[in-house]
Design a protein around this nucleic acid. Structure first.
Lengths: 251, 251
DNA sequence: CGCGCAGTTGACGTGCTTCAACCGCCGTGG
DNA sequence: CCACGGCGGTTGAAGCACGTCAACTGCGCG
């Protein structure tokens, strides 16, 4: 028990310079000296557990959060009391970028599995970006990348159910690969409900398509464990070349 | 004719400090001295006309563009040769934020009606933000706002056709209002095809819902001229309180 | 004056949702 | 240790919202 505690604290306190995410996260392309300046403002909190909320809708925006380990989902309350899943967040990804403008969080961030998270106070980060040009560029790229990803998701909304699920799986695959994990064999920390909600599909539809993909030997599924057998075929599907329902609306 | 030319040139050359958009655009909250520094890097191009392309997919990213007058649409080529409308851009709005990260434009920007546009070289803008803190904040807020708007659009993709069109009209209404125009009486510069494509709906569906809204006295339509009679009702519709198809998927 | 395209309207087909039943895993408590 | 309840997930049947196809209208432009 005491050993577990020590490990946990060690994990918590790992500095940016020795963090395995340093090539993905904010320190990317910073010189050691600047990494240290960044470290000075980063706050490490104790690990959060499944179901914990990182922040709530309405909370005042003060910090960006970076996932160090684990995963989260963000969601907005929907009018009827349900929730709308806005995205999933993997290690190295920054949460809260949408709140900079509004000064207030308008969504919830919930932990899907035990996760450790770095807190980066935004005001101090902004001050730092003014004196570290490469950090400023990194911030602009980060924000821009988020816009690009959102745009991709926006396009998804116009595709068929099969295309959406294929695109979702490929997106996860690529994001995991960037983190040094297998792009073809991984664990989904979110439920089918959450996937369906995220993609705008009914749970049943998600389930049916998973089995359809499995029947077609595109992948193997066993509960939350996914194995992708044919990335190319999935890519083709996701692109919408499926011949059915050509949504090519020229204007 | 010569008078028209003079007016056009006058419009082209208007400086940031005397531009009617100065409270919406980048100069927002800058002191006069800093506005002048911004002006120094802004390039004014001749007005573009309907159908002109501001940039193409594949073009190297060099500048952000701000709409001064007129309107544009951005779209991505879809696999089968059609196009996917990504958004519409009104005066005071910045185009190209998604390209900062990729260093290359991945979509097209096409002019919907005669428009004048300011070009802001990004490298020089970034240099300027490092020495003008309020400009840096403005940039962060701009990028963040875009993320927020994209997220809103993403949520739209999960709603019914009526909800989507209502939300689209309200979005236009609010954006026009911020520009000092009537929020209830305006002209849509895009075609039904483009609206449908943007919202992920068939043209016929858009048309049907327009007439349905008109029958319900929510608005008046005559070709591209729109008059909104009942903003509250549209708001309620857009929120998805329509009692039909409650997409409240709890997880 | 007439071609052409944007827009509207109607009839029909279908992909997805909805409703419902069932299965299997897992935790809990007797 | 097993029984039981509950939830996540899968599968089947039926309905509906929206897409597709097709015909028609009318403004706009050469």
């Amino acid at each position: 028990m005491s050993q577990a505690t020590i490990i946990s604290i060690e994990t918590m306190r790992v500095a940016c310079k020795s963090c395995s995410l340093s090539t993905l996260c904010l320190p990317m392309a910073l010189c050691p000296e600047d990494v240290e300046r960044l470290e000075d403002i980063v706050r490490h909190t104790r690990p959060l557990h499944r179901g914990d909320l990182l922040f709530r809708s309405g909370d005042r925006f003060r910090s960006l959060y970076v996932v160090k380990t684990g995963s989260l989902k963000s969601f907005a309350p929907s009018p009827e009391g349900g929730e709308q899943v806005l995205g999933f967040h993997l290690p190295g990804e920054v949460i809260g970028l949408d709140a900079i403008d509004r000064r207030t969080h308008v969504c919830y961030a919930k932990v899907l599995e035990t996760s450790s998270i770095c807190e980066v106070p935004f005001q101090r980060l902004a001050q730092l970006t003014a004196i570290i040009p490469s950090l400023q560029h990194q911030m602009y790229r980060l924000l821009s990348k988020e816009i690009g990803h959102d745009t991709d998701m926006l396009l998804l909304g116009k595709k068929s159910a099969e295309e959406r699920l294929a695109a979702f799986l490929l997106d996860m695959s690529k994001r995991l690969q960037r983190r040094g994990l297998s792009p073809t064999d991984f664990h989904l920390s979110m439920s089918r409900h959450e996937i369906g909600n995220y993609l705008g599909l009914a749970v049943e539809t998600v389930s049916r398509i998973f089995t359809r993909f499995q029947d077609d030997r595109l992948l193997g599924v066993e509960r939350k464990h996914i194995e992708l057998f044919d990335l190319d075929a999935l890519e083709t599907l996701a692109e919408g070349m499926g011949a059915t329902r050509q949504q090519q609306q020229r204007t």
